[in-house]
Amino acid sequence: MIRLARVGARKQPHYRIVVIEKDRARNGRSVEVVGTYNPRTNPATVDLKRDRIAYWTGNGAQLSDRVEKLLAAAPKAEVAPAA
């Protein structure tokens, strides 16, 4: 499953977007970190490794509801043309 893991100090949330087994605890040992989400910036900052997310979803990983919304809302990265 791909979901959020909370990090950061008390009342200062910052999240990692992680690939983790579904039965593990929210902040349990993850397989891979595939992004970060910081809701405290204006606007909220989302950094994603889209290629790794596509790899894991291709291998059967499910997205949590919140991560699915973050993926839809995050702008696609600009690809520079090959020179």
Rank of each mutant, 00 (worst) to 15 (best):
A77F: 01
P13L: 12
D51Q: 02
D65W: 01
N38C: 07
Q12L: 10
G35I: 04
R50M: 14
N42M: 03
E78V: 13
G8D: 02
K11L: 09
Q62N: 10
A61K: 01
G8W: 03
R29P: 13
K11G: 05
K11R: 12
T45K: 13
E21C: 08
L4Q: 07
V18C: 11
E32V: 08
I2T: 10
V7M: 13
K22S: 11
I20R: 00
P13K: 04
G60I: 11
Q12M: 07
A61L: 12
A9I: 03
Y55S: 01
P81H: 04
W56H: 05
T57L: 13
K11T: 08
R40Y: 01
L4D: 11
I20T: 01
V79D: 02
V46H: 03
I20Q: 09
Q12W: 06
P75E: 09
P43G: 02
R3D: 05
H14C: 09
A54F: 11
R66D: 02
E68L: 05
V34Y: 03
W56M: 03
L48T: 04
P39K: 03
E21Q: 11
G58D: 05
L71C: 04
R66N: 00
N59Y: 10
Y37P: 13
P75L: 09
R10V: 10
A25G: 03
I2R: 13
D51H: 10
D65R: 15
N38Y: 05
T57H: 08
A72P: 13
L4E: 05
I53W: 11
A83N: 08
A77E: 11
R50Q: 08
A5H: 10
V7G: 04
P13T: 09
G60P: 08
L63P: 15
D23A: 13
I17Y: 15
A82V: 10
P43W: 02
R6F: 09
A9S: 12
A44K: 03
Y37K: 11
D47C: 13
I2Q: 06
S64K: 06
I53L: 07
K22A: 14
R10W: 00
N27C: 09
Y55V: 06
K22E: 15
P43F: 07
V19H: 03
A73V: 08
G60T: 03
T57E: 14
R40P: 00
T36N: 03
K22V: 10
Q62W: 07
D65Q: 12
V18E: 11
G35Q: 00
K22Q: 12
A25Q: 10
E68K: 14
T41E: 12
E21K: 15
V19C: 00
A77R: 14
K69R: 12
N38D: 12
R29A: 10
A44M: 01
I2W: 04
R3F: 07
Y15S: 02
Y37C: 10
G60L: 08
V79S: 09
A73R: 08
K22N: 11
R6Q: 14
E68I: 06
A72K: 15
R52T: 04
A61R: 02
L63S: 15
A54L: 11
K11F: 13
S30F: 15
E68R: 15
E78S: 06
P43I: 04
R29T: 12
Q62Y: 09
K22P: 09
Y37H: 15
T36H: 06
V19A: 04
V34M: 05
